[in-house]
Write a protein that binds this DNA or RNA. Sequence first.
DNA 1: CGGCATCCGATTTGATACTG
DNA 2: CAGTATCAAATCGGATGCCG
Lengths: 122, 122
Amino acid sequence: MLLRHPHNTEDCRAVSEILQRVGDKWTVLVVGKLGDGPLRFNELRAAVGGISQKMLTTTLRGLERDGFITRTVFPTIPPRVDYELTELGHELLIPVSALGEWARKNTTRVKAAREKFDGVHA
Amino acid sequence: MLLRHPHNTEDCRAVSEILQRVGDKWTVLVVGKLGDGPLRFNELRAAVGGISQKMLTTTLRGLERDGFITRTVFPTIPPRVDYELTELGHELLIPVSALGEWARKNTTRVKAAREKFDGVHA
DNA sequence: CGGCATCCGATTTGATACTG
DNA sequence: CAGTATCAAATCGGATGCCG
């Protein structure tokens, strides 16, 4: 009987939670880079750009905890650690990419709205 | 020639930006409630639940600035202010709802992953 | 009713130094 | 190479009080 958007409070909370997980400063950037295949820690760092190793570690731990990536350690010297999207991670990338595409298509409209707003509320 | 996910750095930044906008503590809750139609300030406050008026104000201002909602003031006494999704806001709700649906369907898997991770890293 | 101003604690992020 | 530890800075969120 609900043909519209499902937005009762519980559902919205769930949405809000994962959006906060995914919506932190670095998560999507990292997941996006891993979308093409596994990367090592410093490869990922370079690919993302501008991220400190602390934040990269934090982000990766969170993603690993939630089951979006796997962490594989090769006990070599020097050590090598690969990060790779799990099946769940790839599935997450689908709606995230959709939102991303929306974002790319509409940045102009958003920027226009901002300029208009900032002009009025100068 | 790009049949895979589009995740070059610029695009990911754009995605990251809107995700941070949408991924703050209250934005999706508010947008979700407005999805059914316009609401007054305190109606919205009650509908969302648990939000302070400061944060509701901040959230609404941000959404208004980005062109996702309109703010209509009725110069009556006492004053009445209606908030309503714009066309852009409704369009945003589409990919956000998709992500939301993904979230609802996969909370179990995420929770399982967390418990497993927390068990190992006790 | 629908805000804004202020203060304060909590959380987040970043810079730097050190380690197996 | 891939982290951990620590500290400082910035931002966020909430509580309170006042106002048109």
